[in-house]
Design a protein around this nucleic acid. Structure first.
Lengths: 193, 193
DNA sequence: TACGGTGATGAGACAGAGTCTCATCGAGCT
DNA sequence: AGCTCGATGAGACTCTGTCTCATCACCGTA
């Protein structure tokens, strides 16, 4: 696993998750991550803008998928139906390896403000992208933002349940769990006023 | 304005906002901020855990105020009425100096991901505190989170309008603007399903 | 007035994050 | 073999953030 092997990015991600689980996030330096991946510190920063980002890479792709899904929904779909379509589209691409990383990822992030901060930011990015897609469908701004917030909350709630090892129902796919979460949120929102 | 003068914290905040406006956030070092406040770098980090935080200090106080306001609402108040009470309580304490900082603050934050990230995190903290207060009133978890999200969104929307120099209607107080924003959000949420 | 205790500050060393420049390497093309 | 181009490594550098220790102002007390 050295210098000129393929997939340097993925090697860095795996090395980082392993080291964070072994010795903690704070006690792991970027140089150590790079070394385990057979690379140098400089190369790490060519692939990721900072140390936190190695755990959140690919979130931009999720933004794109959510927006695509919402845009591709039938023209007469309601805002929340478009959000459901966005969830279907975005959750379909997740892999088993991503599911496997889930528990370790959540444990590390939960333990460090630095990482929870990045998570909150990424989440805001997802909501903004989804809201923009809804606005392009003609949904008014405030409605679009609220619907997008529900969608992103369902996206995360579904992810949490999908990667929860204590409740590993193999029939529960990520798309199905996200849909169910959205239904719950919709019901709660309807009961709000 | 040197070493043993009073209010070192506030002096640091003012120095930071001034320098960020003058030379930009990236080109301002912590040492420079401390020097302008007549203090040393070490003392800056005694008052703020990191460079970003000098712009967001006091957000914990807002969390407390929001929670207090929600808790103090009449027992028979609906979740959204409790949120309105929380906004009344939290927005009442803002000063004219805070209003004056608003435009510069928003401009600096908007220009740097690093700061927008911290803002998103603080926002999540406010929402969590408000949601916890609502849960303590007996509001179900999901409902509490949604209502809290609306409240925090109204809190920020109201702040933006209150500190918008282009629309400085002196009769528009922060509490009134926050209330109005909450009403708009409530209407949009009701129209969602 | 002198003295001692306490908390805030400064000075400076230090490790790690993140940036930058330049040399080197491998792959593909001619 | 020689050339080009993109990816990498090496290493210097600045700044953030931490830590230790000495110093200073203030306050109470003798």
């Amino acid at each position: 696993m050295a210098r000129w092997d393929p997939n340097p990015r993925l090697r860095l991600v795996r090395a980082a998750i392993d080291l964070f689980a072994e010795q903690g996030y704070d006690d792991t330096t970027v140089a150590q991550i790079a070394a385990r991946a057979g690379l140098s510190k400089a190369t790490f920063f060519r692939h990721f803008p900072d140390k936190r980002e190695v755990l959140f890479a690919g979130q931009e792709a999720h933004s794109t998928l959510l927006a695509e899904g919402a845009t591709a929904a039938p023209p007469d779909a309601t805002p929340l139906e478009a959000v459901a379509a966005a969830l279907d589209h975005a959750t379909a691409s997740f892999t088993d390896e991503q599911r496997g990383f889930g528990p370790r990822l959540r444990a590390v992030v939960a333990a460090h403000d630095e990482l929870r901060e990045r998570e909150a930011f990424k989440r805001a990015g997802l909501a903004a992208a989804l809201a923009a897609a809804l606005r392009d469908r003609g949904v008014p701004d405030t409605t679009a933002r609220l619907a997008a917030d529900l969608g992103v909350e369902a996206f995360h709630l579904g992810y949490t349940r999908w990667t929860d090892v204590d409740a590993d129902d193999d029939a529960a796919t990520y798309p199905a769990l996200a849909r169910r979460a959205l239904d719950e949120l919709r019901a709660a929102a309807a009961a709000l006023h």
